[in-house]
Design a binder for these strands. Structure first.
Lengths: 120, 120
DNA sequence: GTAGGTACTGACTTATAGGTAAGAAATGGC
DNA sequence: GCCATTTCTTACCTATAAGTCAGTACCTAC
């Protein structure tokens, strides 16, 4: 099978990022790999809500995009590890910014229960 | 009509951010407002690919979330401006990180055309 | 020989995001 | 009266994201 080349729309760097790591799971997967390689099953246990099929699919997307390296040990039972590439580690500050924004929002907004927007 | 309160799942700050500003358009809208308030029609012209309906819907979401302020001048024809709140300005460094990641990716990956992942 | 672990695939379905197209309301210009 | 302008709504539809469930292959342990 040919390596699916992850077509990106280069015009806008924000759109590029969204195409690469947008969606419900990709940032969470990359985040789990911040400390080093993990096996498939470890990722599944760390992200209990993701379905196996989607985890496979997203790992493949991230690998095709060059953000992850997939290491197949060729053993039986299967043993496969995923690890951030250099390009993948570039996403770590982004993930930090994402988490930081979420934290600040939770601190400032959820507590003081902002007013609703005016009706007209 | 009661102000729709934008339910967030507070457990994980990454998930919180995704619920707040995830999707195809929200970061782009916030980015356009970095320099100050804009009218609805100006946003529409700055983001020509977004449909009117989605623009309204996303502006409303961001307003309900407390990231935007909506200022209705009560004129006819209508004149409505949208502006970042304090909480919305907190998203600007996040957007910078998103754009920076996209730029670095485009520079390093798209040029040297990485190899595909191994077959097994 | 049956059961269990491991990474993965495929068929199928559901949920949600996003898009199209039409129109409402109120006013000014002609 | 008729048209244009502007923000927004509604009904309807399509596309894509995500999920469920069953099954494959190979080996080990019992």
């Amino acid at each position: 099978m040919a390596p699916a080349p992850v077509s990106i729309t280069p015009r806008c760097p924000i759109r590029t990022t969204l195409e690469l790591v947008g969606g419900k799971w990709r940032l969470l997967i990359l985040h789990q790999l911040r400390g080093g390689a993990l096996r498939f099953g470890e990722l599944r246990r760390l992200l209990p809500d993701i379905s196996e099929k989607i985890l496979v699919q997203e790992l493949r997307h991230l690998t095709d995009a060059g953000l992850l390296m997939r290491h197949n040990f060729g053993e039986v039972p299967p043993r496969v590890e995923y690890e951030l590439t250099e390009a993948g580690r570039v996403a770590l500050p982004l993930i930090e910014a994402v988490a930081s924004f979420g934290q600040q929002y939770l601190r400032t907004m959820v507590s003081h229960e902002r007013p609703g927007r005016p009706q007209a």
